[in-house]
């Protein structure tokens, strides 16, 4: 590894190293792309792919992101954007949980769906796509539902869970699981032109409070459908919030919820 360290320093310029040199190091020193990226960041050298993350995200914060593990539950409208953005941001381990395959009615909004992938498992497509973006990111595809039974194991050692589920009962179950496992959770829901997002830290029950009046299983998305830009906006807000949880920076959406209205172009904050 000492030789590898010398190599990384030798081939870095302005404390930055290109993906081509990282791939060469991987071959010469028989290291996986993940081992190379971790070692480079540990040395305080920035992989050039993250150049435009600076200085909003420092090199040491980049290392924190790389060592973190995010579980994304649901790989549909919200989940595809969350996975893509967190992978590009540099989160090192991403577990994506979803039992479904891509269907034609997903094509209007789900980032990773395409004609050629209809019938393919969403999580498999996600793993393939993220590997093409950055082979150093470990995306673990779980093609099943998250349940009370498998939840504690799947959420083990997760830094933050991201809710990209499509039913109220599943969201409540995830919130309860995160509470019992003791991990933070980023919550969001969308319908038509509207979305809402909040953050639940261990010991809090904001998702339960949000749904305290419900009488039915599904919301107005049954009538209003789900739109591409709403999924992209709210999924991106989730990715930002999850990154803040990991980095311990900024002001989290705890005790409050953002309500996004793309029809009237309004963002309202309510104390929940």
């Amino acid at each position: 590894m000492q030789n590898a360290e010398f190599f990384f320093h030798k081939h870095s310029s302005n404390n930055m190293i290109t993906s081509a040199w990282m791939a060469t190091a991987s071959e010469i020193f028989h290291l996986t792309p993940a081992q190379v990226e971790e070692k480079v960041l540990d040395l305080g050298i920035l992989p050039a792919r993250y150049k435009r993350n600076q200085c909003a995200i420092s090199t040491s914060e980049q290392f924190t992101l790389y060592k973190s593990h995010v579980a994304i539950i649901g790989c549909g409208g919200l989940g595809c954007y969350v996975a893509e953005e967190l992978a590009r941001a540099g989160v090192g381990r991403i577990t994506v949980i979803d039992p479904d395959v891509f269907e034609e009615h997903n094509l209007n909004r789900q980032l990773m769906s395409s004609l050629s992938e209809l019938g393919a498992a969403k999580v498999t497509v996600a793993a393939r796509r993220i590997a093409e973006i950055n082979p150093a990111i470990h995306l673990l595809p779980i093609q099943s539902c998250l349940t009370i039974e498998n939840g504690p194991e799947l959420l083990q050692d997760v830094t933050v869970a991201v809710d990209a589920l499509d039913s109220v009962s599943a969201k409540l179950m995830l919130a309860s699981l995160c509470s019992s496992v003791g991990i933070p959770m980023v919550y969001a829901a969308i319908a038509g032109w509207f979305g809402q997002i909040a953050c639940q830290l261990p010991g809090d029950d904001i998702v339960e409070r949000i749904y305290q009046n419900i009488q039915v299983e599904n919301g107005i998305e049954q009538k209003q459908g789900n739109l591409a830009f709403t999924a992209a906006v709210v999924g991106s807000l989730e990715a930002a919030e999850a990154s803040k949880v990991i980095l311990g920076k900024g002001r989290l959406l705890t005790g409050r919820m953002l309500v996004v209205d793309l029809l009237d172009m309004e963002v309202n904050e309510i104390t929940v």
């Binding site: 499509d166 969001a188 829901a189 319908a191 599904n218 919301g219 998305e221 309500v259 309510i270």
Partner: peptide
């Protein structure tokens, strides 16, 4: 009084 619709999609 403020009323918000039930939203649960993803």
């Amino acid at each position: 009084l403020a009323l918000f619709p039930l939203v649960g999609g993803g």
